[in-house]
Design a protein around this nucleic acid. Structure first.
Length: 517
RNA sequence: GGCAGCGUAGCUCAGUCGGUGAGAGCGCCGGAUUCAUAACCCGGAGGUCGGUGGUUCAAAUCCACCCGCUGCUACCA
């Protein structure tokens, strides 16, 4: 038995100063799909998600709510964990940056970077709001009529210089550009790489990586009045979860990460700072950083003021978890922005799931049930049409792999649904219901081919819709242990004579609640 | 302003190292069918391929300019 190749994939860690919105769920679903795909394809997958719990904004949110940061976390983090449960994520770990393992890991990487001469103490200067306890860029501030400079929250700001530790990011410009050039797949999609290369080419300044104005964070080793500021803390989560600073065991096995899935807004931190931090600490950079797009409600950005923020739990309850997973992964070209609406979701559910796949299964399996006592038919000689159908299905895995190598989840689903569509054409053209009287043997062959295609589609669709795919595979009586992608090989085709359960609908149509009565 | 990208059927998009009458899905119209979740199948309508000019035997596909849109242009994540 060969050793499974390792595959390490992560989501960004969510900032729990609020509750999860659909954007969080989207990233998690997409990453879960990739993780499941790789597992089914024979990889030893490690899939990480979690929460980023430090920083000034957590502190501010807690203060506004009149609670401690710990209380705020106790309130919000469970919501993110519930999201993970609700959307059926297969993550192997859920990291919280307030955990002790993370403090150890983060202080360790800091010390490595410091030992390498990349951290030095200097002063950080900027427009600071005492009330907000935050620095603002000058562009974020305004001068009011009285000539007082105000921050975005409307609070007065003043020019402050504080002691801060800096990371020598400027020293890594050439190495980064070389890395981008030699690893064109490091930043994806291409448009994001262009932006990053352009940014780094423009020159890099050193980075302020500590603060003394608040204390909600991990203390700097040896200088506890400083806490680490945002990115060293946040990014390090990816190696904490592998046991860093222990570089044996999981770390040795899974690092460097195969894919960091993140939102396009934080591409720079992952594609510029993170490799530099890692190199400074004597570690390898990840293999790929993929920046996905944003979701829009009916084409409009979700915002609290517009009142169109969608609760992912509501969506799951309304349409079903698998349907939502399918909708977002099929409808949105992964990497680009996407739009959703009730109409679009219902359309996908009814057209793709109920009408195409669900109905294909029902119409074919019910014929087997009614005419063949529920036993998988025995195929006779295969006609050119049968061969063509099986050949198309047989090509699904390779096309899907190719798509998923580039995180093109939508293209993988296109490939699968092309098979589903062809299977419906095949079924209609062969008309087994007519063959029932004219050529029962031929009918058996057609039903066998169709059921075999359903088996293959069922296997292929597991990464997107784990629950529904399992039900589909139950209908063709495939044991749980025989649902990996290796089982798509011709040697494992549906065995004649296998007893199938009475078919039941797996993908019900979505009917408007009003019309339901 | 600079850099990058985009603008193709009602909608979302594919196609572009130039070359059979410009495609898919959804939507729409018509037909057929009744195995099936009123689903599936077949056919059809619908496009100055942003605009102008140019290169070429031939351009959605190359070049120039113009119009419109988007992203990036550092320490808010």
């Amino acid at each position: 038995m060969s050793v499974k190749p390792p595959f390490y994939i992560t989501t960004a860690i969510s900032y729990p100063n609020g509750v999860p919105h659909m954007g969080h769920a989207y990233e998690a679903i997409a990453t879960d799909c990739m993780a499941r795909f790789k597992r089914l394809d024979g990889y030893d997958v490690r899939f990480l998600t979690g929460t980023d719990e430090h920083g000034i904004k957590m502190l501010q949110t807690a203060q506004r709510a009149g609670v401690t940061t710990r209380e705020l976390l106790e309130r919000n983090v469970p919501r993110f964990q519930a999201m993970v449960e609700t959307f059926n994520l297969s993550n192997d770990d859920f990291i919280r940056t307030t955990e002790e393992r993370h403090r150890i890991s983060t202080q360790a990487i800091w010390e490595k970077m410091a030992a390498n001469g990349d951290i030095y103490k200097s002063t950080y200067a900027g427009w600071y709001s005492i009330r907000d306890e935050a620095y603002y860029a000058e562009s974020e501030t305004t001068l009011n009529d009285a000539g007082v400079r105000l921050g975005p929250q409307g609070t007065p700001v003043e020019w402050v210089e504080e002691e801060s530790y800096f990371f020598r990011l400027s020293a890594y410009q050439d190495r980064l550009l070389t890395y981008y050039a030699e690893n064109p797949g490091f930043i994806a999609p291409d448009t994001r790489r262009n932006e990053v290369v352009s940014f780094v080419s423009g020159g890099l300044q050193d980075l302020s990586i500590s603060r003394t104005t608040f204390d909600w964070g991990i203390p700097v080793p040896g200088d506890p009045k400083h806490i680490m500021y945002v990115w060293v803390d946040a990014l390090t989560n990816y190696i904490t979860a592998l046991g860093y600073p222990n570089v044996d065991g999981d770390f040795a096995k899974y690092w460097p990460a195969d894919v960091h899935v993140i939102g396009k807004d934080i591409i720079r931190f992952h594609a510029v700072y993170w490799p530099a931090f890692l190199w400074s600490a004597g570690l390898e950079a990840p293999k790929r950083v993929f920046g996905h797009g944003f979701l829009f409600n009916r084409g409009e950005k979700m915002s609290k003021s517009v009142g169109n923020v969608i609760d992912p739990f509501d969506l799951a309850a309304t349409y079903g978890v698998d349907a939502i997973r399918y909708f977002f992964l099929r409808e949105v070209a992964f990497g680009q922005d996407g739009s959703y609406s009730h109409e679009a979701i219902v359309n996908r559910i009814n057209a793709d799931l109920a009408n195409d796949l669900g109905n294909l299964a029902q119409r074919s399996l019910s014929m087997i049930s009614k005419n063949l006592n529920g036993l998988v038919p025995t195929p006779g000689p295969l006609s050119p049409e049968d061969e063509a159908m099986l050949a198309l299905a047989g090509g699904m895995l390779e096309k899907s792999r190719e798509a998923m190598e580039a995180q093109a989840i939508h293209l993988y689903l296109n490939a699968v649904w092309a098979v589903v569509a062809e299977a419906n054409r095949y079924f209609a053209a062969q008309a087994p219901w007519a063959l029932r009287k004219t050529d029962p043997a031929r009918m058996e062959t057609v039903l066998w081919v169709t059921a075999e295609v359903i088996r293959q589609v069922g296997i292929m669709v597991q990464p997107v819709m784990p629950e529904s795919a399992a039900k589909l595979l139950d209908l063709v009586a495939i044991p749980v242990a025989e649902r990996g992608f290796d089982r798509l090989a011709p040697a494992f085709r549906l065995p004649a004579g296998l007893a199938l359960p009475t078919p039941v609908g797996v993908f019900p149509r979505y009917v408007e609640p009003e019309a339901a009565t």
